[in-house]
Design a protein around this nucleic acid. Sequence first.
DNA 1: CCGGATCCACCAGGATACTG
DNA 2: CAGTATCCTGGTGGATCCGG
Lengths: 137, 137
Amino acid sequence: MLGSHMEVTPVLEPCGDADHPDCGIRDVLDRIGDKWSVLVIVELASGTRRFRELQRAIDGISQRMLTLTVRRLERDGLVTRTVYPTVPTQVTYELTERGSSLTLLVKQLADWSLEHKDAIGTSRELYDLQNPEQTIR
Amino acid sequence: MLGSHMEVTPVLEPCGDADHPDCGIRDVLDRIGDKWSVLVIVELASGTRRFRELQRAIDGISQRMLTLTVRRLERDGLVTRTVYPTVPTQVTYELTERGSSLTLLVKQLADWSLEHKDAIGTSRELYDLQNPEQTIR
DNA sequence: CCGGATCCACCAGGATACTG
DNA sequence: CAGTATCCTGGTGGATCCGG
């Protein structure tokens, strides 16, 4: 304990430097940090959905991005894709158990956000007021 | 309960559509879903850090991105920035209480990732094997 | 040491048209 | 209905140089 600065309770392991190149956090964020993945997961958390149902449920998502998003989730084993040989084609998506375990995390995120949303908004207004002509955003 | 498909326990509220435009999850992800924010938060979770210390601790981050990242965190009230009128300038960054509350979330993310990392890797290999010539990633 | 200012490359993601 | 194929643009982030 001869360090030059105060250390606090190390709830988190160091990561991100050359010695500890990967604490795993970036993995999750690369998976759910994109624009649509969480919304798909949230929707599927309510039950099995067809392609069109997902697209209608998620406002603003393009056909292309829904396809890409759902493919990646399938590749990671977070959702299953079931094709029924009907005509026209019918495809359903469902969370796997692994995917369901993610919904718990997502709920934590949502709770934290709702809890601090207002305060953060206030902080931003104050910051922008005290720092005019800033390009931060 | 006359719906056409099975519903599961609604641990998560619906969100993302026009009726429920915002469940708040995107807010958090816009804040910590970027390339560097979490790493900065993780590093600051161990204690106060100077600008150079942060840059050395976080492998690969450019000066510009560290500045931008830390500014955004400051704007949101997640870190405090303290300037000491020495020469050359000395600046320290520290997590606020709000920022510290985020480290709990980040830890959940890291735990989930480490727990499922291997299985996801296996799923991907299997998927890529069964679906050659794919542009998914 | 701590940045700000510029320039630039890349790619996530939108729009559109077409197919089984 | 459930995609695939193309084209195109805005923004993220890297590299570099400069200044207090």
